[in-house]
Design a protein around this nucleic acid. Structure first.
Lengths: 250, 250
DNA sequence: CGTACAGTTGAGGAGATTCAATCATCGTGG
DNA sequence: CCACGATGATTGAATCTCCTCAACTGTACG
C-alpha cells in the first residue's frame, strides 16, 4: 500500500528527487541513491504562517532549513534589544548555515508570508557525511557563499548611497527570482518597507523616496509591494556610476 | 644530522605542538598524534614584509593561512576598482576561510607589517579529514564564526554612529590582544587610518576627529598608532548608549 | 464604516563627507 | 647629520545626504 497510495502529505511534499528546487537547494553531484538517503533524513512540508518562527535566537542548534515556498527573514536581537535584519531567503535557499557546528542559533528566522520549509537535521547529517562525502563539502560551499554575501552586504552598507543599496536589493531579488524561472522584472516584495530599511540600514522614508525617484526616472514601476523593473540596465548603471561621477568631477 | 642540528627555520618555526598560538588557531580536541599529522601538511614560517601579498583575489584557491605574528588585512576589489577592506587578522587567526571549497580566493590578503604565516593546504586537508574527523568540524566552526563576525560588522555599519564603530573596533582589538595574553589596554594599531576608515565605512578625517574626541573625554590616549585605553567601561558604555538616548528623548 | 497599519510626502536638523590647509613622522639621500 | 620629500594624521569650514518628526494617504480588515 505504501507504494500504491501515497499519503496526502507525500503528494504535497515529494522527496528531493521530485523537488523542482533541488538544483538550487542541494545542487551537489550526488547520484540518485544518495539523494534517496538524503530524503530519509530531511523532513518536508512544515508550513508556517506569516510571522511564525522557524527557529529562535539562542535556541539549541539542530537543523538548517531549506525554503520551499514563500519567503523568510532572519534577524538578530542585539543586547540592547534592537532588531537587525540579516537576510531575506527565497525558495531554494538555505537558512541557518551560520549556526552550523555552534551550540545555538545566532538569530531568529520568521516567515514573511505563508511559507513551507524542509528541515535538514544536521546531527544526523554528520553521521551520514562519510557515506555522502560531497555533502559536507557542499555545506562548506554554501557557508563560503554566505560569507561572501555578507561581505557584499558589508560593502553595500559601508560605501554605497541609499540609491545604490536599494537598486542593489531590487537587482538581487530579480536575479534570485530569475534563477527559479520566475519573472526577474516583475515581482512582489515579500517584506514590508520597514524590513527593507532595517536590512539596508536606511529609514523607511528613504526607501519610499528613493523608490518614487526611481519611478520618476522611469527605472521601475512600484505600487506598494508590486515591483516592475522597466530598465535593468538603468538600475545596474546606478551601482558603479558613483565612482565615475567622482572621477569626472575631480 | 637532520635530527641533531635543527635548521634555523626549524628553530624559528616549531610545529603546532610547540606553537604558543595552537590553542587559538586549531583549538580542537585532537590528541598529539593528530597534531603531528597536522604538522606534516602545514608549512610554517613563510615571512612577509609589509605590503606583500599572501594570496590574491581570483587566484585559484589552495590554502588557508594562520597568522603567527604580525598582522594582515584582507580586501576585495569591486568591479569598479574600489577597495573594500573586509577584515584585520592578528596572530592565531585564520585567513581564507571564505574561499573554502570555492575555486578562487574571494579577496586579497596583504601583510600590514612584517608577518609570519602558516600555510594550511586544504586539498590535502580533505584527504586526511576522515582520519581526523574533528578537523572538518573545526573548520566549519571557524566559518560559522566568520559569518557571525561579518554579521556583527554589518550591524555596526548599518545602524551605528562613527563613535560606536570606532569604539567597537578598539574594543575588538583589545579583546583579541588579550586572548594572546598581551595587553588589552595598550597596543599599537597595525593599520593606517585609511584602512580603518575603509573597513568601518568612514572617512579618515572622521576617524581622527572621533579619536581626539575620545581623548578629550579621557577614554583613550592616542598618539599616532599607539593606543592606550584609559576606560574600557567608558568605551563599552558608548556601544549601547545610543538607543538609551533615543528612548529618553522620546 | 472606522480603526489600524503600511506607505508616502514635506520641512528641518544632525552627522558625516568633502575639500583644503597644516602638522607630524619617517625613511632617504645629499 | 640634517634637510628633504612623501606619506600619514589632524584640524577647520562648507556641503550634502540621510534621519527625524510630523502630517497625510491609501489599503486591508474587523
Amino acid at each position: 500500500m505504501k507504494n500504491q497510495i501515497p499519503t496526502a502529505t507525500a503528494l504535497m511534499n515529494p522527496g528531493c528527487n521530485q523537488c523542482s528546487l533541488s538544483k538550487l537547494c542541494i545542487p551537489i553531484a550526488v547520484n540518485s541513491e544518495d539523494i534517496d538517503r538524503l530524503d530519509e533524513i530531511i523532513s518536508r512540508g512544515r508550513v508556517l504562517e506569516r510571522g511564525e518562527r522557524i527557529f529562535e535566537q539562542d535556541a539549541p542548534f539542530t537543523s538548517c532549513y531549506a525554503v520551499r515556498s514563500g519567503a523568510v527573514k532572519t534577524y538578530t536581537l542585539s543586547s540592547d534589544g534592537e532588531e537587525q535584519v540579516t537576510g531575506f531567503y527565497l525558495p531554494g535557499e538555505v537558512i541557518g548555515l551560520d549556526s552550523i557546528h555552534m551550540n545555538q542559533y545566532s538569530g531568529t528566522a520568521t516567515a514573511l508570508e505563508r511559507t513551507r520549509v524542509c528541515e535538514i537535521p544536521l546531527g544526523q547529517l554528520d553521521e551520514i557525511a562519510d557515506e555522502i562525502p560531497g555533502l559536507q563539502h557542499h555545506f562548506m560551499h554554501l557557508m563560503s557563499q554566505e560569507i561572501r554575501d555578507s561581505r557584499q552586504l558589508t560593502l553595500l552598507l559601508s560605501k554605497k548611497t541609499a540609491e545604490e543599496r536599494i537598486a542593489s536589493l531590487l537587482l538581487s531579488l530579480s536575479s534570485r527570482f530569475s534563477r527559479r524561472r520566475l519573472s526577474g522584472t516583475e515581482y512582489r516584495l515579500p517584506m514590508p518597507r520597514s524590513d527593507i530599511g532595517n536590512f539596508l540600514g536606511l529609514a523607511v522614508e528613504t526607501i519610499s523616496r528613493v523608490l518614487t525617484r526611481f519611478q520618476n526616472q522611469g527605472l521601475v514601476k512600484v505600487r506598494g509591494r508590486d515591483v516592475e523593473i522597466l530598465s535593468l540596465e538603468g538600475l545596474k548603471g546606478l551601482l558603479s556610476h558613483e565612482t565615475e561621477c567622482k572621477r569626472t568631477s575631480a
